[in-house]
Write a protein that binds this DNA or RNA. Structure first.
Lengths: 150, 150
DNA sequence: GAAGATTGAGACCTCAATCTTT
DNA sequence: AAAGATTGAGGTCTCAATCTTC
């Protein structure tokens, strides 16, 4: 279900403003940041993305004129991702319809209690995902130290 | 959340039996089908996949010896996807741990009413996704017959 | 022409290696 | 050595042709 939902939202954004869902996810925090700039690692962490993914994605977005990259002077290893005019325009045009679409497809007809319990559910799954991997199926190792292998 | 959940399940399957989640999804219906054979279009429809996606994926799985393709004699346009021995072995080895993993990560601690209402939620979203796209943002078409076009 | 299937191009994501700076 | 970031390779998915058969 979530796969199809994302596909649908992706297509709507594509037709509305020529953005993918991933583009949208990148543009939102940028548009809310002071001066439309964020350090790459902060952006990646906020999105829960790998650095590498952000780097590739920003490269593609840069080619399309949605964002720019700038070197960071304070920490010369670092880089900023900066919202470009085209990016600002695109996100401002896309946002209202996208928000309404999510409301309609996902939240319509849900009571606020249902929304709350849905939120609690996703939180509980996320907690279990953060928890250390306890090997799931093997079963035969009683309680020894984790085998470092493979 | 679903993205991370899928990533986790994907990794566990990979380490358990060298399968991706998509491989698993293909192998399950095959292993339940008579003689381990299904027409490609049935398999695709059952999975909710595009034909093209299935074709690419089956090609990769065939290289790894998990499935085979056979021409259909009754309808010479068609093709069967056939479960190979390696595929049968892989799915039988992977299934128990995978099922347990899903149970643990997703359903653990949920009451049966919560499971029911979660199911109802996903169904209602799916229904809205099936429903004709009503254009979301434009708003200027009053109420005419649905435009037949794309 | 429509249905079943395949193919190639392009976008996307992950992993491991790499480079620079701290 | 560790942190920030980039790069290339390889797997994956979508879209738009294409091919064959109905």
């Amino acid at each position: 279900m979530t796969t199809r939902l994302e596909a649908r939202l992706n297509h709507e954004l594509q037709e509305t403003a020529g953005l993918s869902l991933a583009d949208y996810d990148v543009l939102v925090p940028l548009s809310e940041a002071p001066e439309g700039r964020l350090r790459a690692f902060e952006l990646a962490a906020g999105l829960g993305w790998e650095r590498s993914r952000l780097s590739h994605h920003v490269a593609r977005m840069e080619r399309r004129g949605l964002v720019t990259r700038e070197d960071c002077v304070a920490d010369r290893r670092g880089a900023f991702v900066v919202l470009a005019d085209r990016g600002r325009t695109a996100i401002e045009e896309a946002a209202p319809a996208h928000v309404e679409s999510v409301r309609h497809l996902v939240f319509e007809g849900l009571s606020s209690e249902e929304v709350t319990s849905l939120g609690a559910f996703t939180e509980s799954v996320l907690r279990r995902l953060e928890a250390p991997v306890d090997d799931g199926g093997g079963g035969s190792t009683p309680s020894g130290p984790p085998t470092s292998g493979s």
